[in-house]
Design a protein around this nucleic acid. Sequence first.
DNA 1: GCGACAG
DNA 2: ATCTTGTCGC
Length: 235
Amino acid sequence: MKLEQILYPENVDLARRVQVHLLKKLKLRPLTESPRLLAAVDAAFTEELVLAAVCLFSFPELELLEEQTGIEPVRFPYIPGFLSFREGPAIYHTLQKLSRKPDLLLVDGQGIAHPRRLGIATFLGIILDTPSVGCAKSHLVGEFRMPARSGGSCCRLTHRGQLVGYVLRSRTAVRPIFVSPGHLVSPRDALNLVRKGLRGFRVPEPLRRAHHLTQNLKLSPPGNKPCRNKNSGHN
DNA sequence: GCGACAG
DNA sequence: ATCTTGTCGC
Protein backbone atom coordinates (compact mmCIF):
# COMPACT_ATOMS: atom_id res chain seq x y z
CA MET A 1 0.00 0.00 0.00
CA LYS A 2 1.36 3.43 -0.99
CA LEU A 3 2.32 5.96 1.67
CA GLU A 4 0.03 8.50 0.00
CA GLN A 5 -3.08 6.39 0.55
CA ILE A 6 -2.03 5.50 4.08
CA LEU A 7 -1.59 9.14 5.13
CA TYR A 8 -4.44 10.66 3.14
CA PRO A 9 -7.49 8.38 2.85
CA GLU A 10 -10.41 10.30 1.32
CA ASN A 11 -13.02 9.19 3.83
CA VAL A 12 -13.58 7.29 7.06
CA ASP A 13 -14.26 3.97 5.37
CA LEU A 14 -10.94 4.10 3.53
CA ALA A 15 -9.24 5.21 6.75
CA ARG A 16 -10.64 2.16 8.51
CA ARG A 17 -9.23 -0.04 5.74
CA VAL A 18 -5.83 1.56 6.22
CA GLN A 19 -5.98 0.69 9.92
CA VAL A 20 -6.94 -2.91 9.20
CA HIS A 21 -4.09 -3.12 6.70
CA LEU A 22 -1.49 -1.68 9.06
CA LEU A 23 -2.63 -3.93 11.89
CA LYS A 24 -1.15 -6.91 10.02
CA LYS A 25 2.26 -5.31 10.48
CA LEU A 26 1.91 -4.67 14.21
CA LYS A 27 4.54 -6.40 16.29
CA LEU A 28 4.60 -6.20 20.09
CA ARG A 29 7.63 -7.57 21.90
CA PRO A 30 9.90 -6.57 24.77
CA LEU A 31 12.66 -4.12 23.87
CA THR A 32 16.05 -5.80 23.60
CA GLU A 33 18.09 -2.69 24.30
CA SER A 34 17.20 0.54 26.04
CA PRO A 35 16.51 3.40 23.61
CA ARG A 36 19.13 6.16 23.29
CA LEU A 37 17.19 8.71 21.24
CA LEU A 38 13.59 9.53 22.14
CA ALA A 39 11.39 11.71 19.95
CA ALA A 40 8.31 13.27 21.56
CA VAL A 41 5.64 14.47 19.15
CA ASP A 42 2.54 16.66 19.41
CA ALA A 43 0.23 18.77 17.25
CA ALA A 44 -1.84 21.93 17.58
CA PHE A 45 -4.59 23.33 15.36
CA THR A 46 -6.10 26.45 13.87
CA GLU A 47 -9.24 26.35 11.76
CA GLU A 48 -7.31 25.38 8.68
CA LEU A 49 -3.86 24.21 9.80
CA VAL A 50 -2.17 21.34 11.60
CA LEU A 51 0.99 22.49 13.41
CA ALA A 52 3.35 19.65 14.34
CA ALA A 53 6.32 19.63 16.69
CA VAL A 54 9.02 17.04 17.31
CA CYS A 55 11.55 17.14 20.16
CA LEU A 56 14.52 14.78 20.16
CA PHE A 57 15.98 13.85 23.55
CA SER A 58 18.81 11.64 24.79
CA PHE A 59 17.45 8.79 26.91
CA PRO A 60 17.26 8.29 29.79
CA GLU A 61 19.05 11.60 30.54
CA LEU A 62 16.43 13.61 28.66
CA GLU A 63 18.74 16.29 27.34
CA LEU A 64 17.19 18.17 24.43
CA LEU A 65 19.15 17.46 21.27
CA GLU A 66 17.04 18.78 18.40
CA GLU A 67 13.66 20.31 17.58
CA GLN A 68 11.71 20.38 14.31
CA THR A 69 8.32 21.75 13.32
CA GLY A 70 6.02 21.42 10.34
CA ILE A 71 2.70 22.80 9.09
CA GLU A 72 0.09 21.27 6.82
CA PRO A 73 -3.50 22.13 5.94
CA VAL A 74 -6.19 20.23 7.85
CA ARG A 75 -7.45 17.42 5.62
CA PHE A 76 -9.39 15.16 7.96
CA PRO A 77 -11.92 15.87 10.74
CA TYR A 78 -11.47 14.76 14.32
CA ILE A 79 -13.33 11.49 14.77
CA PRO A 80 -12.65 9.35 17.86
CA GLY A 81 -10.73 6.32 16.62
CA PHE A 82 -9.26 8.16 13.60
CA LEU A 83 -6.99 10.73 15.17
CA SER A 84 -3.97 9.53 13.21
CA PHE A 85 -5.45 10.80 9.94
CA ARG A 86 -5.86 14.29 11.35
CA GLU A 87 -2.51 14.68 13.12
CA GLY A 88 -0.46 11.87 11.62
CA PRO A 89 0.64 13.34 8.27
CA ALA A 90 2.05 16.57 9.73
CA ILE A 91 3.85 14.66 12.49
CA TYR A 92 5.19 12.09 10.04
CA HIS A 93 6.71 14.71 7.76
CA THR A 94 8.16 16.61 10.68
CA LEU A 95 9.81 13.46 12.03
CA GLN A 96 11.47 13.04 8.62
CA LYS A 97 13.26 16.36 9.17
CA LEU A 98 15.27 15.01 12.11
CA SER A 99 19.01 14.66 11.44
CA ARG A 100 19.05 11.38 13.36
CA LYS A 101 16.52 8.56 13.52
CA PRO A 102 14.98 8.12 17.00
CA ASP A 103 14.95 4.74 18.78
CA LEU A 104 11.60 5.50 20.34
CA LEU A 105 8.57 7.66 19.61
CA LEU A 106 6.57 9.07 22.51
CA VAL A 107 3.15 10.07 21.24
CA ASP A 108 0.33 12.15 22.72
CA GLY A 109 -2.50 9.64 22.19
CA GLN A 110 -3.26 5.93 22.39
CA GLY A 111 -1.21 3.00 21.11
CA ILE A 112 -3.04 -0.35 20.92
CA ALA A 113 -5.64 0.82 23.45
CA HIS A 114 -7.85 1.52 20.47
CA PRO A 115 -11.00 -0.05 18.92
CA ARG A 116 -8.87 -1.67 16.20
CA ARG A 117 -5.49 -1.58 18.02
CA LEU A 118 -4.39 1.27 15.79
CA GLY A 119 -4.08 4.40 17.86
CA ILE A 120 -1.80 7.17 16.56
CA ALA A 121 1.23 5.83 18.44
CA THR A 122 0.82 2.47 16.73
CA PHE A 123 0.15 4.14 13.38
CA LEU A 124 3.36 6.19 13.51
CA GLY A 125 5.40 3.31 14.91
CA ILE A 126 4.39 1.04 12.03
CA ILE A 127 4.80 3.46 9.12
CA LEU A 128 8.18 4.58 10.48
CA ASP A 129 9.16 1.06 11.59
CA THR A 130 10.17 2.45 14.98
CA PRO A 131 9.32 1.42 18.57
CA SER A 132 6.59 3.68 19.93
CA VAL A 133 4.60 4.37 23.08
CA GLY A 134 1.24 6.08 23.46
CA CYS A 135 0.55 8.38 26.38
CA ALA A 136 -3.01 9.75 26.41
CA LYS A 137 -4.56 12.15 28.88
CA SER A 138 -7.96 10.50 28.76
CA HIS A 139 -9.73 7.24 28.16
CA LEU A 140 -10.74 5.85 24.75
CA VAL A 141 -11.40 2.11 25.19
CA GLY A 142 -10.77 -0.64 27.71
CA GLU A 143 -11.74 -1.53 31.24
CA PHE A 144 -9.79 -0.65 34.35
CA ARG A 145 -9.93 -0.07 38.10
CA MET A 146 -9.18 3.47 39.14
CA PRO A 147 -5.59 3.57 40.47
CA ALA A 148 -5.04 4.62 44.09
CA ARG A 149 -4.86 8.35 44.83
CA SER A 150 -1.10 8.46 45.39
CA GLY A 151 1.45 9.16 42.66
CA GLY A 152 2.90 6.12 40.93
CA SER A 153 -0.03 3.78 41.41
CA CYS A 154 -1.35 2.10 38.32
CA CYS A 155 -3.83 -0.49 37.12
CA ARG A 156 -4.02 -2.66 34.06
CA LEU A 157 -6.07 -1.54 31.07
CA THR A 158 -7.72 -4.42 29.22
CA HIS A 159 -9.87 -4.55 26.09
CA ARG A 160 -11.62 -7.58 24.63
CA GLY A 161 -9.74 -9.78 27.08
CA GLN A 162 -6.31 -8.42 26.14
CA LEU A 163 -3.87 -6.33 28.18
CA VAL A 164 -3.63 -3.13 26.10
CA GLY A 165 -1.86 -0.83 28.56
CA TYR A 166 -1.94 0.76 31.99
CA VAL A 167 -3.80 3.56 33.73
CA LEU A 168 -1.14 5.47 35.64
CA ARG A 169 -1.55 8.06 38.39
CA SER A 170 1.62 9.96 37.56
CA ARG A 171 1.22 12.38 40.52
CA THR A 172 -0.84 12.33 43.69
CA ALA A 173 -4.43 13.49 43.25
CA VAL A 174 -4.26 14.23 39.52
CA ARG A 175 -6.28 12.48 36.85
CA PRO A 176 -4.48 9.35 35.64
CA ILE A 177 -2.92 9.02 32.19
CA PHE A 178 -3.39 6.11 29.79
CA VAL A 179 -0.19 4.41 28.71
CA SER A 180 -0.23 1.84 25.93
CA PRO A 181 2.37 0.20 23.68
CA GLY A 182 2.48 1.52 20.13
CA HIS A 183 4.78 -0.75 18.11
CA LEU A 184 7.82 -2.95 18.81
CA VAL A 185 7.51 -2.65 22.60
CA SER A 186 5.63 -4.55 25.32
CA PRO A 187 2.97 -3.12 27.63
CA ARG A 188 5.53 -3.21 30.47
CA ASP A 189 8.11 -1.39 28.35
CA ALA A 190 5.55 1.32 27.67
CA LEU A 191 4.84 1.77 31.36
CA ASN A 192 8.52 1.75 32.36
CA LEU A 193 9.52 4.20 29.64
CA VAL A 194 6.78 6.67 30.51
CA ARG A 195 7.67 6.49 34.21
CA LYS A 196 11.28 7.37 33.41
CA GLY A 197 10.10 10.42 31.51
CA LEU A 198 7.69 11.84 34.07
CA ARG A 199 10.10 13.96 36.09
CA GLY A 200 7.40 14.86 38.58
CA PHE A 201 4.83 16.03 36.04
CA ARG A 202 1.49 14.56 35.06
CA VAL A 203 2.68 13.94 31.51
CA PRO A 204 6.25 12.99 30.47
CA GLU A 205 8.69 15.91 30.24
CA PRO A 206 9.44 15.32 26.54
CA LEU A 207 5.74 15.56 25.63
CA ARG A 208 5.38 18.79 27.60
CA ARG A 209 8.27 20.26 25.63
CA ALA A 210 6.70 19.18 22.36
CA HIS A 211 3.40 20.67 23.43
CA HIS A 212 5.01 24.01 24.27
CA LEU A 213 6.81 24.02 20.93
CA THR A 214 3.50 23.46 19.19
CA GLN A 215 1.92 26.43 20.96
CA ASN A 216 4.88 28.72 20.20
CA LEU A 217 4.58 27.74 16.56
CA LYS A 218 1.04 29.08 16.53
CA LEU A 219 2.18 32.40 18.00
CA SER A 220 5.26 32.85 15.76
CA PRO A 221 4.67 31.01 12.48
CA PRO A 222 7.69 30.78 10.12
CA GLY A 223 7.41 33.33 7.33
CA ASN A 224 6.89 36.06 9.89
CA LYS A 225 10.64 36.20 10.27
CA PRO A 226 11.61 39.64 11.46
CA CYS A 227 13.38 41.49 8.61
CA ARG A 228 16.84 42.89 9.15
CA ASN A 229 17.04 46.68 8.88
CA LYS A 230 13.73 47.16 10.58
CA ASN A 231 14.12 48.85 13.95
CA SER A 232 17.10 46.64 14.79
CA GLY A 233 19.19 49.63 15.87
CA HIS A 234 22.48 48.74 14.18
CA ASN A 235 22.31 50.45 10.76
C1' DG B 1 -32.08 2.68 20.37
C1' DC B 2 -28.64 4.44 24.10
C1' DG B 3 -24.24 5.79 25.79
C1' DA B 4 -19.14 6.39 24.93
C1' DC B 5 -16.03 8.77 22.36
C1' DA B 6 -7.58 9.90 22.16
C1' DG B 7 -6.71 15.14 20.26
C1' DA C 1 -7.82 20.27 20.19
C1' DT C 2 -9.80 25.28 20.72
C1' DC C 3 -12.61 29.02 22.86
C1' DT C 4 -12.34 31.82 27.15
C1' DT C 5 -12.40 35.12 32.94
C1' DG C 6 -12.31 34.81 36.86
C1' DT C 7 -11.38 32.20 40.74
C1' DC C 8 -10.42 28.44 44.48
C1' DG C 9 -6.55 26.58 46.95
C1' DC C 10 -1.61 25.44 48.40
